[in-house]
Design a protein around this nucleic acid. Sequence first.
RNA 1: GGCCCAUUCGUCUAGUGGCCUAGGACACCGCCCUCUCACGGCGGCGGCACGGGUUCGAAUCCCGUAUGGGCCUCCA
Length: 421
Amino acid sequence: MSVRVRMAPSPTGLLHIGNVRTALFNWLFARHEGGEFRLRIENTDTAREVFEATEQIQQSLRWLGLDWDDEVTFQLDRMEDCRAAAQELLAAGKAYEDEGAIRFRMPDEGVTAFDDIVLGRIEVPNEEIEDLVLVRSDGRPTYNFASPLEDLWDGITHVIRGPDHISNTPKQINVLSALGARLPRYAHVPNVNGPDGSKLSKRHGAVSVDDFRVAGYLPEALMNFLALLGWAPDGETTIMSRDELVGRFSLERVGSSPAIFDYAKLDWMNGMYLRALSPEDFADRLVSYVGETRRDWPEERVRAAVPLVQEKIGRLSEFEAFAGFLFGDVEPDGALLDKRILEPARSALGELETWSAGEIERRLKALCDELGEKPRTVYLPIRVAVTGSRVSPGLYESLELLGREESLARLEAGAAAADAA
RNA sequence: GGCCCAUUCGUCUAGUGGCCUAGGACACCGCCCUCUCACGGCGGCGGCACGGGUUCGAAUCCCGUAUGGGCCUCCA
């Protein structure tokens, strides 16, 4: 039998990365099994609903590459069906009215048990389970009633969700059983926490999918990283393409203990992906990323800067600090400038007939000999004068791309601005 | 408080009774490369929460303790 799973977010805001990780496991499982992955918006709680959230959730999913099957469904659309199911239970004596609400009559004895794919067998004494409200006195079905019903109607075969639902499961199982329904398999995947072990929140850094996009992460890197939080194909492999992830994923290998989100490792992984991109692909991504915030930066120059930065940055957002000198004036620290080097450097480079990285390199090395100084000594003030920072892309290439006129002007300005020794 | 779940280097993890002198990756430290920063290469530091069992033998099985988390809403 083909599998069918779903992601069921409530539209209360931006997609949280922890929920995305759970969605990813659902998606990987569905794709691996050749089954379906559905998207259902649980908008029963109209008071907490955020208008744009539904669209944002879909955008985030698309950006990450998590495609879903069929149309998106909305929990609210099936309220009538839920009420009808509640009436059925009422008529059968399996539920009762309680001050206008309808409550489910839980069994008093015995245990409710299920075999969780991740956690193993879980048993809960029925006396611990309270009579569940199915329909509120205002007529709206509750989550613990609507959710399992929709899973049933949608033919969901595997319910893969966060650990906060473990204690809901026995309730839902009893409701489903009373309806004579066939039960789905359950897999409760562990949480993802922040570096201090508490729930991942804004104070830890990026937390919504959108935050990560804005911070300059690549969707495939984020997907790879997320997949490895609680799952591993073996003890060695870390970098895996989307197809490889799909090919190797299995719920049985999902671990049972919570993971901590390690931003440093994500940075490393993102750098790996960035460097593995073809220069053309890297350029396309950089252009579209930079274009969102720096519309005034010429695309051609951004593309031209690619060879200078691809090996250097770990996130697209670092481009601005790293190569910003190509797009505007710089403010060098006068204490790092040195007239005794900048003046001869200006004259030496001014003599060049061809303004190319190769020629610049040759001339600068000769200058080092003439001055009797090591390259590191000579290059520092030049770098600072030209790029405004002691950290920059390769000096020769930077000068070449900046252009003869602007480079010489900055060297001259640097010499003039040098602090008196 | 009750119920449920979890516990291998700082972090992500491999490990399913002998292959473990516990492997890999990130981070960190050192060295090399080098015009800065990265990248890359080499090396290092570092862990089975604790206590009892079971067994010839336990990171692996059982029990207890501790710690952490989740749930106990007419929230989802």
